[in-house]
Design a protein around this nucleic acid. Structure first.
Length: 544
RNA sequence: GCGCCUGUAGCUCAGUUGGAUAGAGCGACAGAUUCCGAAUCUGUAGGUCAGAGGUUCGAGCCCUCUCAGGCGCACCA
């Protein structure tokens, strides 16, 4: 019998159920397969009878019984189909199905979990996109961890994902940055020049100035400074193991190509704009925004919003069918404007979504660390990495949902103890590695085929097998939902259930056949822990 | 004033998009090691899911209102 993954098992069940309810002649009720929370209810559950009850004006329990009578399922995979009040259809798989899963895990190894369920997705994921005017801070660190994990998850499900960093290197920004740099140079020579209003201050500007004065002839300060800062940012991200496919320059890709003015003209022609007080406004309020916005300022220069609209239209024009941005909490008010503008311009807004990576409160010894951008006093991503390391940082940032206001406790992240959730999972992996080494010394090798796994019959190993089976689905679902924290929850559960298994069942001194089967299970868990943490950008040490 | 996010155990948070008896970690308390890693495991205590209505077979999840905290609401980017 060909081995089946969780997707095909569920699809077969759904198809069978759909066939069984065909005689009712109800077509608009989708068949859903759920995983019941309570294990005693079986491996899958279907609430279809409850949904049908109202339409058919019959008791859900009776409908469920009728469905089960008409249901034809694969007897080799399914052990039992039962009806439970108020009308659930519960399905229990044969142990054999799980034993096949383990064979699959061991065979595919590093590829286990990869699937093609998301192959129709062509996603442009824009994140971090911090202004090239200073080092990356911890909000950027959160966005970077989140975005990179989402990209990895969806890629594992067969999607094409492009990771993009939008560089705001045009206009006012560049000018202010250049003037700030000149001021810093003056201070370096003993002068008293201050950064202009809205400019940039802080120790890093002085560092830049020191390098800038050495260059002769002097380049354009704004452009040179921003290039330097971008290099810093790339270096920080490299430490973090986050790499972008595109660094999309606002200046080069939009302004220099005339796309911003072209977009404005296009919107004008579509009668979506009007003039007031010498400025050009876009009528986004007609498309759901609270008020209209300025596209071209009265000084003739396009507003930031105009460039942003041009940029997002470009995302559509490049052929992506899903467009996702990760923004900071201070930009949430921008979402509705952007959506309104895109809708006005005739693009499918449903394909565009924004994740708000909420603020991060850094805690040190239980106290909030105060940060002020104006005074150049904020915790940088590099400082965070120096303190807690890449693994803990990335894990902490993806372990909670993006829209929770995150408390990041540096003390806990630094601790190499049970208080730190990163180590719990890593420890399970290291434990298994150590076990495998011990077994190798005894020339005990893991079993390889499903028929050898028949000895895994106790509740603990069966639970682990089931979780291994579900892994690809967690990969898919947390990717599609753009919520890596779901996978974290899964991995914590898997690690916990392994520890339970490990403390209950001996491996080395079990009879050889049993030992080899249990060893194979441990190896399977290790594989999934490694693959799963890998999708979060967290490494798995063999020893700790 | 308007809008967005948040409110679940002492603390930090999950809750599989509306399913069955609301979960985990930390902290507290009580236990487990002549034995594969105790960075582990077992058990106990801890809840009016902010509050009030509503929708339906069924609500922590959806709708309305109220309260509390955070953040936005520029011809800034």
């Amino acid at each position: 019998m060909a081995s089946q993954d969780i997707f095909s098992i569920q699809k077969n069940l759904a198809d069978s159920l759909a066939e069984a309810i065909q005689s009712y002649g109800v077509s608009d009720v989708p068949v859903t397969i759920e995983r019941p929370k309570d294990k005693s209810h079986g491996d899958f559950a279907c609430p279809i009878a409850m949904h049908l009850a109202k339409k058919l004006k019959k008791q859900p329990l009776m409908i469920a019984q009728e469905i089960v009578q008409n249901l034809k399922v694969d007897q080799k995979m399914v052990e039992q189909v039962a009806v439970a009040p108020p009308g659930f259809i519960n399905i229990k798989l044969r142990h054999q199905a799980f034993h096949q899963t383990l064979e699959q895990v061991l065979k595919t190894d590093g590829d286990y979990g990869k699937n093609d369920q998301g192959k129709e997705i062509r996603l442009l994921l824009e994140f971090v996109s911090a202004n090239p005017t200073g080092p990356l801070n911890i909000v950027s660190a959160r966005a970077a961890a989140l975005g990179d994990s989402i990209a990895k998850l969806l890629t594992a499900s067969g999607a094409q994902v492009t990771k993009e960093y939008y560089v705001n290197d045009a206009g006012v920004q560049a000018r202010l940055f250049g003037e700030s740099l000149i001021a810093a140079c003056d201070r370096l020579k003993g002068g008293t020049a201050q950064a202009p209003e809205g400019g940039y201050q802080g120790a890093y500007m002085d560092d830049l100035a020191k390098d800038f004065v050495k260059i002769s002839p002097a380049p354009d300060p704004g452009q040179w400074g921003m290039d330097q800062v971008i290099e810093w940012q790339k270096k920080s991200l490299e430490r973090y193991e986050v790499r972008f496919d595109n660094w999309y320059s606002e200046k080069k890709n939009l302004h220099d190509k005339g796309l911003v003015t072209a977009t404005v003209e296009k919107l004008k022609k579509a009668n979506l704009t009007y003039e007031k007080d010498g400025a050009v406004w876009i009528k986004v309020s007609e498309f759901g925004a609270p008020k209209d916005e300025v596209l071209v300022k009265s000084d003739g220069y396009p507003a930031y919003f105009a460039a942003d609209i041009a940029y997002h239209i470009e995302k559509y024009e490049r052929g992506f069918n899903q467009i996702v941005d990760i923004w900071g909490p201070d930009h949430h008010g921008h979402i509705i404007r952007m959506k309104a503008a895109l809708q006005a311009a005739g693009y499918q807004v449903e394909r565009f979504s924004v994740i708000i990576a909420q603020q991060v409160n850094l805690l040190e010894a239980g106290e909030k660390v105060k940060m002020s951008k104006r005074e150049g006093k904020f915790v940088t991503m590099d400082e965070l990495l120096d303190q807690v390391g890449k693994d803990a940082a990335r894990f902490f940032f993806v372990m909670r949902s993006a829209n929770s206001h995150l408390d990041f406790d540096i003390e806990v992240a630094k601790k190499q103890t049970e208080e730190n959730p990163v180590f719990y999972i890593q420890y399970a992996h290291a434990r298994i590695f150590s076990l495998l080494r011990k077994c190798a010394e005894k020339e005990l090798t893991p079993a390889k085929t499903a028929s050898d796994f028949g000895l895994l019959q106790e509740p603990e190993p069966l639970l682990l097998l089931k979780e291994l089976m579900e892994y690809p689905q967690w990969v898919l679902e947390s990717g599609k939902a753009l919520e890596p924290h779901r996978l974290v929850v899964y991995l914590q559960t898997l690690a916990a259930d392994f520890h339970v298994f490990y403390s209950k069942h001996r491996i080395l001194d079990a009879p050889p056949d049993v030992a080899r089967a249990r060893l194979a299970l441990a190896l399977g868990v290790k594989t999934v822990l490694r693959n799963g943490l890998g999708l979060l950008g967290v490494s798995v040490p063999d020893q700790m």
